[in-house]
Design a protein around this nucleic acid. Structure first.
Length: 419
DNA sequence: TCTGGGGTCCTAGGACCC
DNA sequence: TCTGGGGTCCTAGGACCC
Protein backbone atom coordinates (compact mmCIF):
# COMPACT_ATOMS: atom_id res chain seq x y z
CA UNK A 1 0.00 0.00 0.00
CA UNK A 2 0.99 3.60 -0.58
CA UNK A 3 0.12 6.49 1.69
CA UNK A 4 -0.03 10.03 0.39
CA UNK A 5 0.23 12.66 3.10
CA UNK A 6 -0.65 16.16 1.95
CA UNK A 7 -0.62 19.26 4.15
CA UNK A 8 -3.84 21.23 4.19
CA UNK A 9 -3.50 24.70 2.60
CA UNK A 10 0.15 24.44 3.49
CA UNK A 11 1.45 28.02 3.26
CA UNK A 12 -1.66 29.40 4.93
CA UNK A 13 -1.32 26.79 7.69
CA UNK A 14 2.33 27.77 8.26
CA UNK A 15 1.33 31.41 8.74
CA UNK A 16 -1.49 30.41 11.07
CA UNK A 17 0.78 28.20 13.13
CA UNK A 18 2.43 31.34 14.54
CA UNK A 19 -0.73 33.45 14.52
CA UNK A 20 -3.24 31.16 16.22
CA UNK A 21 -5.77 33.97 16.42
CA UNK A 22 -6.21 33.49 12.65
CA UNK A 23 -7.56 29.95 12.96
CA UNK A 24 -11.04 29.92 11.47
CA UNK A 25 -10.41 33.19 9.61
CA UNK A 26 -9.73 33.65 5.89
CA UNK A 27 -5.99 33.68 5.10
CA UNK A 28 -4.25 33.97 1.73
CA UNK A 29 -0.59 33.90 0.76
CA UNK A 30 0.68 35.80 -2.27
CA UNK A 31 3.42 34.91 -4.75
CA UNK A 32 6.66 36.85 -5.15
CA UNK A 33 6.09 40.56 -5.74
CA UNK A 34 2.74 40.10 -4.00
CA UNK A 35 1.41 39.15 -7.43
CA UNK A 36 -1.00 36.23 -7.29
CA UNK A 37 -2.79 34.18 -4.67
CA UNK A 38 -0.87 30.93 -4.23
CA UNK A 39 -2.46 29.55 -1.06
CA UNK A 40 -5.84 29.94 0.60
CA UNK A 41 -7.31 28.75 3.86
CA UNK A 42 -10.68 26.99 3.60
CA UNK A 43 -12.41 30.20 4.67
CA UNK A 44 -10.70 32.10 1.83
CA UNK A 45 -11.70 29.39 -0.64
CA UNK A 46 -15.28 29.72 0.55
CA UNK A 47 -15.17 33.42 -0.39
CA UNK A 48 -14.60 32.37 -3.99
CA UNK A 49 -10.99 33.50 -4.23
CA UNK A 50 -9.49 31.29 -6.92
CA UNK A 51 -5.98 29.86 -7.02
CA UNK A 52 -3.68 32.13 -9.01
CA UNK A 53 -5.95 35.15 -8.75
CA UNK A 54 -4.13 38.46 -9.33
CA UNK A 55 -4.02 40.11 -5.91
CA UNK A 56 -4.95 43.61 -7.11
CA UNK A 57 -8.20 42.30 -8.58
CA UNK A 58 -9.23 41.01 -5.16
CA UNK A 59 -8.25 43.98 -3.00
CA UNK A 60 -11.89 44.73 -2.37
CA UNK A 61 -12.76 41.17 -1.47
CA UNK A 62 -9.81 41.09 0.94
CA UNK A 63 -10.91 44.30 2.62
CA UNK A 64 -14.61 43.67 2.96
CA UNK A 65 -14.09 40.16 4.31
CA UNK A 66 -11.11 40.94 6.51
CA UNK A 67 -8.95 38.42 4.72
CA UNK A 68 -5.48 38.18 6.26
CA UNK A 69 -2.97 38.59 3.46
CA UNK A 70 0.64 37.41 3.64
CA UNK A 71 3.60 37.80 1.30
CA UNK A 72 5.29 34.49 0.51
CA UNK A 73 7.80 33.56 3.21
CA UNK A 74 9.65 30.63 1.71
CA UNK A 75 12.24 30.52 4.48
CA UNK A 76 9.41 29.68 6.86
CA UNK A 77 7.61 27.23 4.56
CA UNK A 78 10.80 25.37 3.69
CA UNK A 79 11.70 24.91 7.33
CA UNK A 80 8.19 23.86 8.35
CA UNK A 81 8.16 21.39 5.46
CA UNK A 82 11.32 19.79 6.73
CA UNK A 83 9.80 19.38 10.17
CA UNK A 84 6.71 17.69 8.75
CA UNK A 85 8.85 15.37 6.61
CA UNK A 86 11.00 14.48 9.62
CA UNK A 87 7.95 13.36 11.54
CA UNK A 88 6.60 11.35 8.60
CA UNK A 89 9.89 9.60 7.97
CA UNK A 90 9.40 7.73 11.24
CA UNK A 91 6.39 5.92 9.81
CA UNK A 92 8.09 4.02 6.98
CA UNK A 93 11.62 3.42 5.75
CA UNK A 94 10.44 4.07 2.18
CA UNK A 95 9.51 7.67 1.63
CA UNK A 96 9.39 10.00 -1.34
CA UNK A 97 9.14 13.72 -0.71
CA UNK A 98 6.97 14.63 -3.64
CA UNK A 99 6.73 18.37 -3.13
CA UNK A 100 7.10 20.97 -0.39
CA UNK A 101 3.83 19.83 1.20
CA UNK A 102 3.38 16.20 0.10
CA UNK A 103 5.04 12.86 0.67
CA UNK A 104 4.40 9.29 -0.38
CA UNK A 105 5.14 6.48 2.04
CA UNK A 106 5.39 2.91 0.82
CA UNK A 107 3.95 0.56 3.40
CA UNK A 108 5.49 -2.77 2.60
CA UNK A 109 5.25 -5.49 5.23
CA UNK A 110 2.53 -3.69 7.12
CA UNK A 111 0.04 -6.52 6.59
CA UNK A 112 -0.72 -6.86 10.26
CA UNK A 113 -1.27 -3.18 10.78
CA UNK A 114 -4.60 -1.47 10.88
CA UNK A 115 -3.73 1.14 8.31
CA UNK A 116 -6.63 3.38 9.18
CA UNK A 117 -5.30 3.67 12.73
CA UNK A 118 -1.72 4.00 11.55
CA UNK A 119 -2.63 6.91 9.28
CA UNK A 120 -4.59 8.55 12.07
CA UNK A 121 -1.46 8.39 14.21
CA UNK A 122 0.49 10.11 11.46
CA UNK A 123 -1.98 12.96 11.40
CA UNK A 124 -1.98 13.35 15.13
CA UNK A 125 1.78 13.27 15.45
CA UNK A 126 2.34 15.80 12.66
CA UNK A 127 -0.24 18.06 14.21
CA UNK A 128 1.18 17.77 17.70
CA UNK A 129 4.83 18.17 16.71
CA UNK A 130 4.52 20.82 13.97
CA UNK A 131 1.03 22.31 14.21
CA UNK A 132 0.35 21.59 10.53
CA UNK A 133 -2.91 19.80 9.64
CA UNK A 134 -2.55 17.02 7.07
CA UNK A 135 -4.78 14.50 5.30
CA UNK A 136 -3.78 10.95 4.48
CA UNK A 137 -4.90 8.80 1.56
CA UNK A 138 -4.08 5.09 1.40
CA UNK A 139 -4.37 2.76 -1.59
CA UNK A 140 -2.54 0.03 -3.50
CA UNK A 141 -1.09 2.49 -6.06
CA UNK A 142 0.16 6.06 -6.07
CA UNK A 143 -2.56 7.42 -8.33
CA UNK A 144 -5.22 5.83 -6.14
CA UNK A 145 -3.54 7.13 -2.97
CA UNK A 146 -3.76 10.61 -4.49
CA UNK A 147 -7.44 10.02 -5.07
CA UNK A 148 -7.97 8.69 -1.54
CA UNK A 149 -6.27 11.79 -0.18
CA UNK A 150 -8.62 13.97 -2.18
CA UNK A 151 -11.60 12.25 -0.61
CA UNK A 152 -10.14 12.69 2.87
CA UNK A 153 -9.69 16.40 2.20
CA UNK A 154 -13.10 16.88 0.67
CA UNK A 155 -15.06 15.15 3.46
CA UNK A 156 -13.22 15.92 6.70
CA UNK A 157 -16.26 15.32 8.88
CA UNK A 158 -16.87 11.81 7.57
CA UNK A 159 -13.25 10.74 7.06
CA UNK A 160 -11.50 12.56 9.92
CA UNK A 161 -8.74 13.29 7.41
CA UNK A 162 -7.97 9.66 6.53
CA UNK A 163 -9.34 7.57 3.69
CA UNK A 164 -8.36 4.07 2.65
CA UNK A 165 -9.13 2.48 -0.70
CA UNK A 166 -8.63 -1.20 0.01
CA UNK A 167 -11.49 -2.91 -1.80
CA UNK A 168 -12.61 -2.93 -5.40
CA UNK A 169 -15.95 -1.60 -4.33
CA UNK A 170 -14.39 1.49 -2.76
CA UNK A 171 -12.13 1.93 -5.75
CA UNK A 172 -15.01 1.94 -8.24
CA UNK A 173 -17.02 4.26 -6.07
CA UNK A 174 -14.09 6.67 -5.81
CA UNK A 175 -13.39 6.56 -9.54
CA UNK A 176 -17.02 7.30 -10.29
CA UNK A 177 -16.83 10.31 -7.97
CA UNK A 178 -13.65 11.81 -9.42
CA UNK A 179 -13.94 14.15 -12.38
CA UNK A 180 -11.51 13.37 -15.16
CA UNK A 181 -9.83 16.80 -14.94
CA UNK A 182 -9.06 16.11 -11.27
CA UNK A 183 -7.07 12.95 -11.97
CA UNK A 184 -3.43 13.35 -10.99
CA UNK A 185 -1.60 13.70 -14.31
CA UNK A 186 -4.55 14.88 -16.38
CA UNK A 187 -4.43 18.59 -17.03
CA UNK A 188 -6.69 21.01 -18.83
CA UNK A 189 -5.66 20.06 -22.37
CA UNK A 190 -6.10 16.33 -21.89
CA UNK A 191 -9.34 16.82 -19.99
CA UNK A 192 -10.77 18.76 -22.89
CA UNK A 193 -9.82 16.03 -25.31
CA UNK A 194 -11.27 13.35 -23.03
CA UNK A 195 -14.54 15.26 -22.57
CA UNK A 196 -14.91 15.48 -26.33
CA UNK A 197 -14.67 11.72 -26.34
CA UNK A 198 -17.42 11.47 -23.73
CA UNK A 199 -15.08 10.66 -20.89
CA UNK A 200 -16.10 12.63 -17.83
CA UNK A 201 -15.19 10.61 -14.75
CA UNK A 202 -12.09 8.70 -13.71
CA UNK A 203 -14.11 5.52 -14.16
CA UNK A 204 -14.88 6.47 -17.78
CA UNK A 205 -11.16 7.03 -18.23
CA UNK A 206 -10.19 3.67 -16.76
CA UNK A 207 -12.66 1.91 -19.03
CA UNK A 208 -11.57 3.80 -22.16
CA UNK A 209 -9.90 1.90 -24.98
CA UNK A 210 -6.19 1.67 -24.19
CA UNK A 211 -5.14 2.08 -27.80
CA UNK A 212 -7.11 5.29 -28.00
CA UNK A 213 -5.52 6.50 -24.77
CA UNK A 214 -2.08 5.70 -26.10
CA UNK A 215 -2.69 7.64 -29.31
CA UNK A 216 -4.11 10.66 -27.55
CA UNK A 217 -2.33 10.82 -24.18
CA UNK A 218 0.79 8.81 -24.99
CA UNK A 219 2.44 6.31 -22.69
CA UNK A 220 1.89 8.45 -19.59
CA UNK A 221 -1.86 8.07 -20.01
CA UNK A 222 -1.62 4.31 -20.39
CA UNK A 223 0.39 4.01 -17.18
CA UNK A 224 -2.06 6.19 -15.34
CA UNK A 225 -4.94 4.08 -16.54
CA UNK A 226 -3.32 0.95 -15.13
CA UNK A 227 -2.42 2.64 -11.85
CA UNK A 228 -6.04 3.67 -11.39
CA UNK A 229 -7.09 0.08 -11.97
CA UNK A 230 -5.01 -0.88 -9.00
CA UNK A 231 -2.18 -2.31 -11.09
CA UNK A 232 0.95 -0.67 -9.75
CA UNK A 233 2.92 1.03 -12.50
CA UNK A 234 4.32 4.00 -10.60
CA UNK A 235 6.80 3.45 -7.79
CA UNK A 236 8.51 5.71 -5.29
CA UNK A 237 11.13 7.85 -6.97
CA UNK A 238 14.65 8.38 -5.73
CA UNK A 239 15.95 11.86 -5.16
CA UNK A 240 17.81 12.82 -8.32
CA UNK A 241 20.15 15.73 -8.82
CA UNK A 242 18.37 18.40 -10.81
CA UNK A 243 18.67 18.47 -14.58
CA UNK A 244 18.04 22.16 -14.90
CA UNK A 245 18.20 25.07 -12.50
CA UNK A 246 16.43 28.37 -13.01
CA UNK A 247 16.41 31.79 -11.43
CA UNK A 248 13.79 34.05 -12.95
CA UNK A 249 11.90 37.07 -11.69
CA UNK A 250 9.27 39.57 -12.64
CA UNK A 251 10.32 43.11 -11.85
CA UNK A 252 8.38 45.48 -9.70
CA UNK A 253 8.91 48.19 -12.29
CA UNK A 254 9.76 48.07 -15.96
CA UNK A 255 13.36 48.24 -17.10
CA UNK A 256 14.28 49.95 -20.32
CA UNK A 257 18.04 50.25 -20.00
CA UNK A 258 20.57 47.57 -20.75
CA UNK A 259 22.55 48.38 -17.59
CA UNK A 260 19.56 47.64 -15.36
CA UNK A 261 19.02 44.27 -17.00
CA UNK A 262 22.73 43.52 -16.81
CA UNK A 263 22.64 43.92 -13.08
CA UNK A 264 19.58 41.65 -12.76
CA UNK A 265 20.95 38.98 -15.10
CA UNK A 266 24.22 38.95 -13.16
CA UNK A 267 22.37 38.33 -9.93
CA UNK A 268 20.36 35.52 -11.55
CA UNK A 269 23.50 33.91 -12.97
CA UNK A 270 25.22 34.12 -9.57
CA UNK A 271 22.18 32.51 -7.97
CA UNK A 272 22.20 29.65 -10.53
CA UNK A 273 25.91 29.17 -9.91
CA UNK A 274 25.33 28.92 -6.16
CA UNK A 275 22.59 26.34 -6.63
CA UNK A 276 24.85 24.38 -9.00
CA UNK A 277 27.66 24.31 -6.44
CA UNK A 278 25.24 23.15 -3.78
CA UNK A 279 24.49 20.00 -5.76
CA UNK A 280 28.12 19.67 -6.94
CA UNK A 281 27.33 20.09 -10.62
CA UNK A 282 28.77 22.11 -13.45
CA UNK A 283 26.67 23.20 -16.41
CA UNK A 284 27.48 23.18 -20.08
CA UNK A 285 24.72 25.33 -21.41
CA UNK A 286 22.95 28.42 -20.29
CA UNK A 287 19.79 30.15 -21.38
CA UNK A 288 18.89 33.80 -20.87
CA UNK A 289 15.46 35.23 -21.58
CA UNK A 290 13.90 38.66 -21.41
CA UNK A 291 10.32 39.68 -21.99
CA UNK A 292 7.98 42.63 -21.81
CA UNK A 293 4.74 42.58 -19.83
CA UNK A 294 2.52 40.13 -21.69
CA UNK A 295 -0.56 41.31 -19.78
CA UNK A 296 -0.35 44.74 -21.37
CA UNK A 297 -1.05 43.97 -25.00
CA UNK A 298 -1.29 47.68 -25.86
CA UNK A 299 2.44 48.00 -25.14
CA UNK A 300 4.97 46.90 -27.77
CA UNK A 301 5.71 43.24 -27.05
CA UNK A 302 9.06 41.52 -27.20
CA UNK A 303 10.08 38.13 -25.85
CA UNK A 304 13.23 36.28 -26.66
CA UNK A 305 15.54 33.65 -25.30
CA UNK A 306 18.91 32.40 -26.35
CA UNK A 307 20.83 29.27 -25.43
CA UNK A 308 24.61 29.36 -25.24
CA UNK A 309 26.63 26.17 -25.43
CA UNK A 310 29.54 26.87 -23.12
CA UNK A 311 33.09 26.05 -24.23
CA UNK A 312 33.62 24.24 -20.93
CA UNK A 313 31.60 23.05 -17.96
CA UNK A 314 31.59 25.45 -15.04
CA UNK A 315 29.82 26.52 -11.87
CA UNK A 316 31.90 29.63 -11.28
CA UNK A 317 29.76 32.68 -10.61
CA UNK A 318 32.24 34.80 -12.51
CA UNK A 319 32.31 32.65 -15.63
CA UNK A 320 28.57 32.07 -15.72
CA UNK A 321 28.00 35.80 -15.33
CA UNK A 322 30.30 36.51 -18.25
CA UNK A 323 28.40 34.10 -20.50
CA UNK A 324 25.00 35.28 -19.30
CA UNK A 325 25.90 38.90 -20.09
CA UNK A 326 27.11 37.88 -23.55
CA UNK A 327 23.79 36.18 -24.10
CA UNK A 328 21.85 39.20 -22.86
CA UNK A 329 23.81 41.45 -25.22
CA UNK A 330 22.69 39.26 -28.12
CA UNK A 331 18.96 39.47 -27.40
CA UNK A 332 18.55 42.89 -25.81
CA UNK A 333 16.73 45.45 -27.94
CA UNK A 334 16.32 49.10 -27.17
CA UNK A 335 12.87 50.65 -27.00
CA UNK A 336 11.05 48.06 -24.90
CA UNK A 337 9.90 48.02 -21.29
CA UNK A 338 11.14 44.77 -19.79
CA UNK A 339 9.09 43.15 -17.05
CA UNK A 340 10.65 39.76 -16.59
CA UNK A 341 13.96 38.00 -17.18
CA UNK A 342 15.75 34.89 -16.13
CA UNK A 343 18.72 32.57 -16.37
CA UNK A 344 18.37 28.79 -16.74
CA UNK A 345 21.35 26.43 -16.69
CA UNK A 346 21.30 22.92 -18.14
CA UNK A 347 23.44 19.97 -19.32
CA UNK A 348 25.09 19.14 -16.04
CA UNK A 349 28.23 17.16 -15.35
CA UNK A 350 29.44 16.18 -11.90
CA UNK A 351 31.78 18.78 -10.47
CA UNK A 352 34.61 16.33 -9.88
CA UNK A 353 34.55 14.95 -13.43
CA UNK A 354 35.02 18.14 -15.40
CA UNK A 355 36.38 17.36 -18.84
CA UNK A 356 39.45 19.33 -19.77
CA UNK A 357 39.26 20.73 -23.29
CA UNK A 358 42.17 21.63 -25.52
CA UNK A 359 41.67 25.32 -25.98
CA UNK A 360 39.75 26.81 -23.13
CA UNK A 361 38.98 25.69 -19.63
CA UNK A 362 37.28 26.83 -16.52
CA UNK A 363 39.70 28.85 -14.44
CA UNK A 364 40.86 26.49 -11.67
CA UNK A 365 41.53 29.44 -9.38
CA UNK A 366 37.82 30.11 -9.23
CA UNK A 367 37.21 26.91 -7.28
CA UNK A 368 38.76 28.06 -3.96
CA UNK A 369 37.42 31.54 -4.60
CA UNK A 370 33.86 30.28 -4.91
CA UNK A 371 34.29 28.09 -1.85
CA UNK A 372 35.37 31.15 0.10
CA UNK A 373 32.43 33.20 -1.20
CA UNK A 374 29.94 30.46 -0.35
CA UNK A 375 31.41 30.12 3.11
CA UNK A 376 31.22 33.81 3.83
CA UNK A 377 27.71 34.13 2.50
CA UNK A 378 26.60 31.23 4.64
CA UNK A 379 28.23 32.75 7.67
CA UNK A 380 27.31 36.40 7.27
CA UNK A 381 24.09 36.23 5.27
CA UNK A 382 23.14 35.84 1.63
CA UNK A 383 24.76 38.18 -0.83
CA UNK A 384 27.13 39.75 1.66
CA UNK A 385 29.90 39.05 -0.83
CA UNK A 386 28.92 40.01 -4.37
CA UNK A 387 30.43 40.59 -7.77
CA UNK A 388 31.18 44.21 -8.56
CA UNK A 389 28.60 44.40 -11.32
CA UNK A 390 25.85 43.44 -8.88
CA UNK A 391 23.89 46.15 -7.23
CA UNK A 392 25.93 47.30 -4.24
CA UNK A 393 23.88 50.14 -2.84
CA UNK A 394 20.16 50.06 -3.47
CA UNK A 395 19.82 46.26 -3.31
CA UNK A 396 16.99 45.37 -5.63
CA UNK A 397 13.91 44.46 -3.67
CA UNK A 398 10.71 42.77 -4.58
CA UNK A 399 7.39 43.86 -3.30
CA UNK A 400 6.72 42.04 -0.03
CA UNK A 401 4.46 44.25 1.98
CA UNK A 402 2.96 41.59 4.20
CA UNK A 403 5.96 39.48 5.01
CA UNK A 404 5.77 37.54 8.25
CA UNK A 405 8.85 37.01 10.44
CA UNK A 406 11.16 34.06 9.83
CA UNK A 407 10.07 32.53 13.09
CA UNK A 408 12.03 29.31 12.79
CA UNK A 409 15.15 30.24 10.82
CA UNK A 410 16.26 33.62 12.09
CA UNK A 411 17.39 34.15 15.64
CA UNK A 412 16.11 37.72 15.85
CA UNK A 413 12.66 36.65 14.60
CA UNK A 414 11.94 34.04 17.25
CA UNK A 415 8.71 34.76 19.04
CA UNK A 416 8.70 36.03 22.58
CA UNK A 417 6.49 34.34 25.13
CA UNK A 418 5.17 36.46 27.97
CA UNK A 419 4.37 34.40 31.01
C1' DT B 1 -0.41 50.69 -10.99
C1' DC B 2 -0.59 45.95 -9.75
C1' DT B 3 -0.85 39.55 -13.13
C1' DG B 4 4.80 33.92 -9.61
C1' DG B 5 8.50 30.59 -9.81
C1' DG B 6 10.60 26.19 -10.57
C1' DG B 7 10.64 21.81 -12.20
C1' DT B 8 9.82 16.93 -15.12
C1' DC B 9 8.78 13.78 -18.96
C1' DC B 10 7.45 12.52 -23.70
C1' DT B 11 7.14 12.88 -28.73
C1' DA B 12 7.72 14.23 -33.46
C1' DG B 13 10.62 15.57 -36.74
C1' DG B 14 15.00 17.03 -38.59
C1' DA B 15 19.83 16.05 -39.25
C1' DC B 16 23.00 12.87 -39.59
C1' DC B 17 25.31 8.13 -40.05
C1' DC B 18 26.35 3.68 -42.70
C1' DT C 1 7.06 6.05 -64.00
C1' DC C 2 10.97 5.41 -61.42
C1' DT C 3 14.65 7.44 -56.85
C1' DG C 4 16.52 1.79 -50.09
C1' DG C 5 16.67 0.54 -45.48
C1' DG C 6 17.79 1.03 -40.91
C1' DG C 7 19.52 3.34 -37.37
C1' DT C 8 20.91 7.33 -33.57
C1' DC C 9 21.03 11.82 -31.63
C1' DC C 10 19.28 16.27 -30.74
C1' DT C 11 15.88 19.82 -30.10
C1' DA C 12 11.62 22.34 -29.78
C1' DG C 13 7.36 22.23 -28.11
C1' DG C 14 3.61 20.40 -25.55
C1' DA C 15 1.83 18.51 -21.59
C1' DC C 16 1.95 17.92 -16.81
C1' DC C 17 3.12 18.77 -11.56
C1' DC C 18 3.52 21.70 -7.12
Amino acid sequence: MFALIDCNNFYASCERMFRPELVGKPVVVLSNNDGCVIARSNEAKALGIPMGAPAFEYDKVFKTNQVHVFSANFALYGDMSQRVMDVLSDFSPDMEIYSIDEAFLKLQGFDNYNLQDYATKMRQKVMKWTGIPVCVGLAPTKALAKLANRIAKKYPDITQGVYVIDTDEKRIKALKWLKVEDIWGIGGQHAKKLNQHNIYTALDFVLADTQWVKTNLAIVGVRLQADLQGIQTLDLEEVQPKKSIATTRSFETNYTKLEDLQERITTFAVSCAEKLRKQHSCCQSLMVFVRTNRHLQQMPQYSRNIVLQLPFATNSSIELTKFALQALQMIFKNGYSYKKAGVIVQDFTPQNQAQMTIFENSNPRHIPLMQAMDKMNTLYGQQKVRLGIQDTKKVWKMKQEKLSPRYTTKLSDIITVNV
